[in-house]
């Protein structure tokens, strides 16, 4: 499982592996928003935490179809499936690799980009904390979606259509916690719910991912 994780990390960071593309996308979306809504500091600082969340979610979505598609095309996925590790672990390893290459960099980059959006001073820690808690759930849900659409040619658009509704609860609690924290309100409840969703996703979705992979590899 660790070997698989290391292999995926190596593949992702290699030239053409797509590592960093998500980050650049994140940067561009954050830069585009002020052009769309106008440069007033008051408006921007009010919506900054929400924009960072939505942009991070879209950036995570961007790299999802790489999780299984390449391995499926060159047959590596069949080999991995016959290897002596359970498919559930494969799903978890894939999700971890995706998180380490997109979720974690996004979390680190978000406070930096917060400067561009006039994020209030006490918001930085909350944005980083909620993203740190929430992005693992995004990766795990996304891995399930990627497993679901792995057998479909040009499934990228379908993948977005399937995964985005599943992202709604994570987004609501994550952005709500960040918003409340930034506004100086009590953010305990949404933070707990966010952590609960992440824990639940990591605990249960590997099984759904494995079931779906088995169907697709039949």
């Amino acid at each position: 499982m660790i070997a698989l994780l290391l292999r995926d990390l190596r593949l992702a960071t290699r030239a053409g592996g797509g590592f960093g593309l998500g980050l650049v996308f994140f940067l561009i979306v954050v830069v585009l928003v002020p052009f769309g809504v106008g440069p007033e500091t008051a408006i921007l600082s009010k919506i900054a935490s929400g924009i960072l969340w939505v942009a991070a979610l879209l950036a995570a979505l961007l790299s999802l179809d790489r999780i299984f598609a390449l391995d499926f095309e060159d047959g590596a996925l069949t080999l991995i499936a016959t290897a002596p590790i359970p498919l559930e672990a494969v799903g978890l390893a894939k999700a971890t690799a995706h998180w380490l290459t997109t979720g974690l960099p996004l979390t680190i980059a978000a406070p930096v980009l917060g400067v561009l959006l006039q994020l209030p001073a006490n918001g930085y820690s909350f944005v980083a904390l909620t993203l740190l808690l929430g992005t693992p759930a995004l990766s795990m849900i996304g891995t399930f979606g990627a497993a679901l659409t792995v057998g479909i040619r040009r499934g990228g658009l379908l993948l977005s259509l399937l995964v985005l509704p599943l992202y709604i609860p994570t987004l609501i609690f994550g952005a709500e916690a960040a918003r409340r924290g930034t506004a100086g309100l009590d953010a305990t409840t949404p933070l707990l719910m966010l952590a609960g969703i992440t824990a639940g996703s990591i605990a249960l979705l590997p099984f759904a991912t494995a079931a779906v992979l088995r169907i697709n590899l039949r």
Partner: peptide
């Protein structure tokens, strides 16, 4: 048959997340 299997799993996972969304939206 593959379509039936995959959509069934999606329906089950989707139900859980739809229910979660319901509570999330209520809270929001």
């Amino acid at each position: 048959d593959t379509a039936a299997d995959l959509t069934s799993v999606l329906c089950i996972v989707g139900s859980v997340f739809a229910l979660l969304s319901r509570y999330a939206v209520n809270f929001w």
